[in-house]
Design a protein around this nucleic acid. Structure first.
Length: 411
DNA sequence: TAGTCATCACTAGCATCAGT
DNA sequence: ACTGATGCTAGTGATGACTA
């Protein structure tokens, strides 16, 4: 019987080191594809890309063969909650009425702690089954040209690994697999570099039909991101002017909002408003509906419904102290909708987020720092700031139905 | 220099379609 | 019955130009 010793797993590279390494190898890979090539139509360019694709496919293929060999006779012996017993990794779990009352699983974004747990499970798995550290291959391997029945060796192996990685998590196999695919399968994130754009161009020139899947492999990016980028390049951008919100404009906005929702102002507080309403508003304002929606939830809602004069930095101080003492581990763990309930009425989660983020966004690596450190730094920054008395402007409707400012000297 | 605004990008869900 | 490819959405997150 193999004893799994968690304490032996401590020797590992920190995340940052790993990321830097990946980052560097990615850059040199992409650069080598374009070495000495100035003209996009150079066939050697697409050759390089295709070669790189081949390498990736081979790598994944070999890894899967090894995996099948190592786990083909393994059976699941550990306890599995009902929601981990499904056979499908690529479709969300459908629950029957009965199951909805059973032991529940989480549905929000996977937190830092959960992600670490998956990593830990993977290290155990590697050790026990003697496979290389190549989760990326599992993540991007596609069952093509083979039977897709769930009991083929490859599918079984894949399911076994994912089930193993899901141990101890209140998540479905689908959720864990999604997490693996996004975090390990397409590790390249952020804006597209000029090299990447060149590669995209070349691929579309030579292989328009498979360009997206090809690019997703070679660039190690999510296919959806590539689609989106493509659309941006093809589409003539609609000419949206910058918008400057003024009291008259906000008045017009609010009047229309009241009209389209057919509700009195008080009823709009904390209410989620249908998209169609914002789409109608967007037509009137000739602006993106998402922007208008953001304006409502991030600004106007707060200014209308907050019942006291708020000093921004006082609010921040309070928020960061609460965050420091919370159970959240890193910034991205924060569930703003839950968090905002601890604050005065009228504040929205988006407002709170934007106000707090202002402080931390200039702190290097703020998304990864332990929240305790981050909040300490944030509190220090707030203490040092010069504009400590900034208050939130509050607004109300006067008798004519126009928005006016509530003077803060009344308080 | 803090706040505003626009825009790009990613995450995680849902849906549909064709292929095996 | 299940897959991959593709599309859409709400919610988050990053960044840079502009402004008060």
């Amino acid at each position: 019987m193999l004893i799994e010793d968690e304490n032996n797993l401590d020797v590992e590279m920190s995340d940052n080191e790993l990321n830097d390494e990946q980052e560097n190898s990615r850059k040199s890979e992409l650069e080598s594809m374009f070495k000495d090539i100035d003209h996009l139509n150079e066939p050697s360019c697409i050759d390089n890309i295709l070669m790189s694709l081949e390498e990736i496919r081979d790598e994944d293929h070999l890894f899967m063969e090894l995996l099948v060999e190592r786990v083909s006779r393994e059976e699941i012996t550990w306890y599995q909650p009902w929601y981990q017993q499904s056979n499908s990794l690529t479709r969300p779990l459908k629950c029957s009425e009965k199951q909805k009352n059973a032991e529940p699983f989480l549905t929000d974004t996977i937190s830092k702690a959960e992600s670490d747990r998956i990593k830990k499970n993977w290290r155990k798995f590697m050790k026990k089954y003697k496979v290389p550290d190549q989760l990326i291959s599992l993540a991007r391997w596609k069952n093509k040209g083979k039977s897709r029945l769930p009991n083929t060796p490859e599918e079984q192996a894949k399911r076994f690994v994912v089930a193993y990685l899901s141990r101890g998590l209140e998540r479905t196999l689908y959720q864990v697999f999604r997490h693996i695919v996004t975090y390990y399968g397409s590790p390249n994130k952020g804006p597209y570099t000029p090299e990447e754009e060149k590669i995209m161009e070349v691929c579309f020139e030579y292989h328009p039909n498979h360009a997206v899947t090809l690019l997703s492999s070679v660039l190690k990016r999510e296919p959806r991101g590539i689609y989106k980028r493509l659309q941006q390049q093809l589409n003539v951008k609609p000419d949206i002017k910058k918008m400057k919100w003024t009291l008259p404009l906000a008045t017009k906005f609010l009047k229309l909002l009241l009209k389209y929702t057919d509700l009195p102002l008080e009823k709009l507080k904390n209410r989620s408003i249908e998209k169609s309403v914002f789409v109608k508003l967007a037509e009137k304002f000739e602006h993106n509906y998402t922007h208008l929606r953001l304006f409502w939830y991030q600004s106007l809602h707060v200014q209308l419904f907050v019942e006291e004069h708020i000093k921004l930095n006082k609010l921040r101080k309070r928020a960061f102290k609460k965050l420091r003492d919370s159970s959240y581990q890193v910034w991205t763990d924060i569930r703003w909708k839950d968090f905002v309930t601890q604050f005065p009425e009228g504040l929205t989660h988006r407002f709170l987020y934007i106000v707090c983020r202002r402080v931390v966004c200039s702190i290097p690596d703020y998304l990864k720092l332990p929240l305790q450190d981050l909040t300490e730094q944030a509190l220090q920054k707030i203490r040092k700031t010069r504009y400590r008395k900034l208050r939130l402007k509050r607004l109300c409707l006067n008798e004519d139905g126009d928005l006016v400012k509530i003077s803060s000297t009344d308080w």
